[in-house]
Design a protein around this nucleic acid. Structure first.
Lengths: 326, 326
DNA sequence: AAAATATATGGAACCGGTTCCTTTACAAGT
DNA sequence: ACTTGTAAAGGAACCGGTTCCATATATTTT
């Protein structure tokens, strides 16, 4: 592999001249042509390690995702990728399988690699996160969880929860089952649930059940096959679209129809909710916008400009055919 | 940010000693302890650029994907990621939106970044690919398309196509619509279709229609809403699961039932085919295995061992509820 | 106790770029 | 003709690590 030294030697100039040629310094036309020719002949490709070592920055943005089998992940990933590409950044994607240890490790690894910034699709933020992030000289943008010690985008989970609960009530449902997830995930497990329950519990004549299931489709599906017959709700309010899909499938498997016998709704607005029939009522989170916003924000931060630490994004209710009035 | 020089100075040793400490060379217990302490105090993190510059290799594997909105992509991504992590490699994911220019650019960019290897989920392979890849000193593994000039994993597309066509015939369907994609994608557009048509055309008393649609769900769905009423087949044989989902949704929208009025099948074995009801008959491609195999193969290549240029993976038919006998 | 060997450490070169500082050469200004 | 200014190029230092080689000290062998 040719290096800048080879080019300089073959072209009969100093390597500083070659570097100047590459970076737009003053080089005579004649020299330019020689260098150009030599580069073409050798198929020269500059080494980014050497560049970054000196220049002390890279065009890498690291993104840490909790799981690779989630539609929400893909939607955000896609939007961030699209937006980042416009600004000539390169995405380094890494998946931690919701393992906190790996998350910490990965923040370190990214920092070794001198990424320009880190985006963290968080589930839980611990003290160790805080210590590490505060010690880091790389900006970190947390998406999806409230966080006091660095930049973060959050969704108004409570309001989203309330919206959906009100929707269920407005359709006259009184036998409601809420399928939530573990509270380790503060946003989804706690706040979203809180929003839902705040509204539902205010209504005293309700038959309300709450059950914890898993983010994973298959696990939840198997659980529900056993659980659903013991409760027979008229409305299943699911904490994610994925769970809603599992509930939908389980309901059909148990011989009931959606929405005729049971109404089902999710949260997220994954495109997959439109693929099934009936399409699933959901609260759409602005995943598409998150990408643009995140990149914009990062640019400001990297330019040393002052920006708001926290941005709150508002989800919107999307009523489709999986819920109906009774 | 502390560097190795700072550590050496603070610990009162030479930086070579610090480096030795980091890489397991011979260092006395006493010195070790001092260095350890200094590192802890300063929160030292080695710079991978500097390391890679000298060591001339990185633990990065670059993967180029044609689109980020495909279930096939996700399945492969997930399996490669899982397997790579076991071997302490880091995945660099980049999406080219099926743009050949960007694909070429990205191979170059990866090569600048001195990735250890490149995995290319290919759609088309041009002469420019060949030139570039042959000039590169980095191993490239192509997945999904036949390729003579570098390592590649391919699926037996023709046999997959035949399987599905035979399935359709065995169910006594005689009015078959094949929904294919553009032949730019050799594997899916040409070979898969060829397998299907080889079998179907051998059967003379068939009413066979062939139509080209798009990989994109939404585009295909809209096309089919107009097209399907003009042909009314009893079996829609779709080139991908995604297309099958669109066909399924369009069929329902047009007031027909699946599989009672129309049978539908796809290719791929995406987990989403199990989410809908009825579950969609498909040919399962061994995406999960591809990850393990790819990483295994790369390890051998990187160790300088001789390996087969081409591996052929065999897809299997999975009959579910979206196809039925008439 | 002397010689041979192993361990611990420092110094310097090196990886492949960028950048600062000089020097050279030539054109323009007075 | 002499100063001044500017474009073009070279030289060397530097970024933060690794590694080779030389040297000093400690340990083992005979």
């Amino acid at each position: 592999m040719a290096t800048i030294n080879d080019i300089a030697r073959l072209a009969g100039v100093a390597k500083s001249t070659v570097s100047r040629y590459l970076n737009g310094g003053s080089v005579s036309q004649a020299t330019k042509e020689i260098i150009e020719k030599v580069m073409k002949d050798t198929g020269y490709i500059p080494n980014t390690f050497a560049q970054s070592l000196k220049v002390k920055k890279s065009n890498l943005i690291g993104i840490i995702i909790p799981r690779l089998n989630s539609y929400a992940t893909y939607e955000i990933l896609e939007s961030i990728d699209r937006s980042l590409k416009k600004h000539h950044y390169q995405l380094l994607i890494t998946n931690t399988d919701q393992n906190i240890e790996r998350e910490i490790e990965q923040i370190l690894a990214f920092s070794k690699q001198k990424v320009a910034a880190i985006i963290l699709l968080a589930t839980t933020l611990t003290n160790r996160h805080q210590q590490l992030i505060e010690a880091l000289d790389i900006p970190v943008l947390v998406i999806g969880q409230r966080c006091d010690f660095t930049y973060n985008f959050i969704y108004n989970e409570i309001s989203a929860g309330k919206m959906m609960a009100e929707h269920a009530l407005s359709l006259n449902h009184r036998q409601i089952l809420y399928l939530g997830v573990n509270e380790h995930d503060v946003a989804v497990g706690k706040l979203r649930k809180q929003g839902v329950l705040d509204v539902l519990k205010a209504n005293s004549q309700l038959m309300l059940k709450v059950k914890e299931v898993d983010f994973n489709y298959e696990i939840t599906y198997q659980m529900l096959l056993e659980y659903l017959p013991t409760v027979s709700p008229s409305y299943i309010l699911c904490a994610t679209d994925n769970i809603a899909l599992a509930a939908y499938k389980a309901t059909l498997a148990l011989g009931k129809r959606v929405p005729d016998d049971v109404s089902i709704s999710g949260f997220g607005g994954y495109s997959i909710t439109n693929l099934v029939t009936p399409a699933i009522t959901t609260v759409r989170y602005p995943y598409k916008e998150v990408g643009d916003l995140a990149v914009l924000q990062l640019q400001h931060i990297l330019n040393g400009e002052e920006v708001e630490r926290q941005s709150i994004l508002i989800p919107v209710l999307e009523v489709k055919q999986s819920t109906r009035k009774i």
